[in-house]
């Protein structure tokens, strides 16, 4: 199953990149995708079986992506105001904060960490045994953590139901 899924995803990429649709190039694409599927199918998908729940995860992820983009723009304007302001040193109050997370799966930990990094003002420094060390630029952005974003990420990957 994951062979087929990997092959389909890779072949979609090949078609976008190649842009030539004659038999020669398409057969080269099939051969290349076959090679890459054989060598790295276990890299792309770690789990072996798929259920209908995972399609739902994709749609939720796309919805989350747009919300995240909106947050990024808002936070970016905040950081831009700080960095262009002449009294910059008074506005910032940087420190590393440490908080416990309730997420457990690898993929949701990574999504949450990358969302924190993409939102300006906060960088995930280390994840260790359920603790996040986050460097925050000032108090205002630090107060939003972990907050709504963690709940949303947990909702995407169904942390509470062990899906």
């Amino acid at each position: 199953m994951r062979y087929v899924l990997t092959f389909i995803i890779l072949f979609a990429h090949w078609i976008i990149w190649s842009g030539i649709f004659d038999a020669y190039h398409l057969s080269l694409g099939v051969i290349s995708c076959g090679i890459v599927t054989y060598t790295s199918h276990s890299l792309l998908f770690e789990r072996k079986e798929f259920r209908a729940v995972h399609i739902k995860e994709v749609t939720r992820f796309i919805k989350y992506f747009f919300w995240l983009f909106y947050q990024i723009v808002l936070a970016n304007i905040h950081v831009m105001r700080i960095s262009l302001s002449p009294r910059m040193l008074d506005l910032i109050d940087p420190r590393i904060i440490k908080f416990k997370t309730k997420l457990k799966k690898d993929i949701s930990l990574v999504t949450f960490a990358n969302s924190i990094i993409l939102t300006p003002g906060t960088i995930t420094v280390i994840i260790e045994e359920g603790y996040y060390y986050v460097h925050a630029l000032d108090r205002k952005v630090a107060e939003d953590l972990p907050g709504e974003m963690e709940d949303r990420v947990g909702h995407i990957f169904m942390e509470d139901r062990h899906g």
């Binding site: 990024i72 970016n76 950081v79 831009m80 960095s83 939102t119 300006p120 003002g121 960088i123």
Partner: peptide
């Protein structure tokens, strides 16, 4: 660390 904030994020957006 604060430099990382400005270059990593604003550049991405």
């Amino acid at each position: 660390f604060t430099r990382m904030h400005s270059t990593g994020k604003s550049d991405t957006l």
